[in-house]
Design a binder for these strands. Structure first.
Lengths: 106, 106
DNA sequence: CCTAGTACTTTCCTTTAGGAAACTACTTAC
DNA sequence: GTAAGTAGTTTCCTAAAGGAAAGTACTAGG
């Protein structure tokens, strides 16, 4: 079941792009994420952030500014995804070169 | 895009369980996979095998038996998923212990 | 000619994922 | 009081994923 647990956390179109944006930028506010994560709609961003927070991958901090802003960032647990992400990226790159290249050539 | 390429190959409910069954057993026939991959229906197995084959993760060999049987196994390229799979498994196990355990305890 | 076993494929249906647009609620500046 | 900026939520819709059951096509055995 460990495989399924991990895939559930990462599945869907947006979770990895959101994690990627937070990995690169550190803290980001809701509106920043809307701009950084290309093409995402507010509904999906809101929903995915809630799921990632419930899995303790990111933290949500309401700042006492006016108007209020909300900062999201990776938790320590979220940062442990580093190895998974680089491994997936490396294989995706290999696969892209080996298989997807051939498909286009054919 | 490498991330998306890799996730496409592994996404969905059944691809990883199918790869897992082939990793453990070596060669398996269609009916073997129906039995090994718990809960999968013939339609889904057939569709997922075709996708995995088109991505060169598995090979499909028709044997000249009566009735004919078809053997599936991981290709060399499919075996390069090893690192990804163990990394995902390791993280899933960590996540399960850290987060899913807490959820049940709460 | 009927049954059983192989490997699928087809049909019909429900569930889930995702998206566009409008709307809520609060606050500050004008 | 109204416009603009914050962070969402709600509604309504389409598309994609998944599942149960029946059907197809081939062959061998009785």
């Amino acid at each position: 079941m460990a495989m399924r647990d991990a895939m559930d956390v990462l599945s869907g179109k947006w979770k990895i792009p959101i994690i990627g944006a937070l990995r690169l930028n550190g803290k980001l506010r809701f509106m920043d994420l809307l701009r950084e994560v290309d093409g995402i709609a507010a509904k999906m961003l809101s929903k995915e952030l809630a799921l990632l927070e419930s899995n303790q991958i990111i933290s949500r901090t309401v700042l006492n500014t006016k108007p209020i802003t909300v900062e999201y960032e990776l938790t320590e647990h979220g940062k442990t995804l580093e190895g998974v992400i680089t491994e997936i990226w490396k294989w995706g790159d290999l696969h892209r070169k080996k298989v997807i290249g051939e498909k286009k050539a054919a």
